[in-house]
Amino acid sequence: MTTPHPSVAPPADSAGWLRTGHTRHEAAFRALCKLAIALPLCLLVVLGGSLVVEAWPRLGASFVTSYPSRFAESAGILPALVGTALLMGLTALFAIPLGVGAAVYLEEYAQKTRWSALLELNITTLAGVPSILYGLLGLELFVRVMDLGRSLVAGAATLALLLLPMLITVSREALRTVPRELREACFALGADRAATLRRVVLPMCMPGVLTGIILSLSRAIGETAPLITIGALGYVAFLPTSLGSAFTALPIQIFNWVSRPQAAFRANAAAAIVVLLVLMLLMNGVALWLRKRLQKRITG
């Protein structure tokens, strides 16, 4: 496409030929590339702007402290917000031990056997399973077989399974940053693996693991499809009283409002989206801050 094609023999005016660049092609291509990057980003900025404009009238204290309502103007997201907070807490409770534990097992314990190869393959496979299918698993396993009902705990368990592949991957990456020499130093001091892990490996990779956990949770906070499948409610006019309570969550509330034809509810959806995005940004911010702080503590 752009390769120069001079005749094989050197041109008569070789000095002049040397000076002719092919920069025009390259400049055009660079512009095209920049456009390709700018287009989606601009789209997002414009859409984000319209979103905020649409949401603005609804964003106020009462929006966060009210229950949903048939009247868009007085509806709020209190149950959704509380539901999301509880859901995330429970999900973290289930997912962190499993995810970090599996990562530690794979990095520190598993020898290269068929079993560990199977585990690897399995994690790759799980990462590619659409989230709605985790919802079907949760619906059968947690809601029906374990009879947890359409409850907070069933929702959290489902989200925890969904998070596992990502958590395992980020935790393994963090574990791999701990140099092998330090493990050897521990072993040479007569430590077993458990002590090596607790005293040296885990303290060292903690910033990475924590950051990974928070980033994973910030992904989970926006997950909608599996919660819909296990039957989170779109209209909840009460706060959850126990782990077995029916619940709603922010993304479910958003979906519920988006699905209504009235424009006033669209504005509510926009406002709820702004809240959700702010929560996500906060979590990301905390993750970055934590990583910086903990890293400083280690090297300082």
Binding site: L44, L51, S218, R219, I221, G222, E223, T224, A225, P251, I254, F255, V258, R266, A269, A270, I273, L276, L277, M280, N284
Partner: peptide, 9 residues
Amino acid sequence: GVPTVVYGY
């Protein structure tokens, strides 16, 4: 990182 429900909206 944007939740898909937001893209839907």
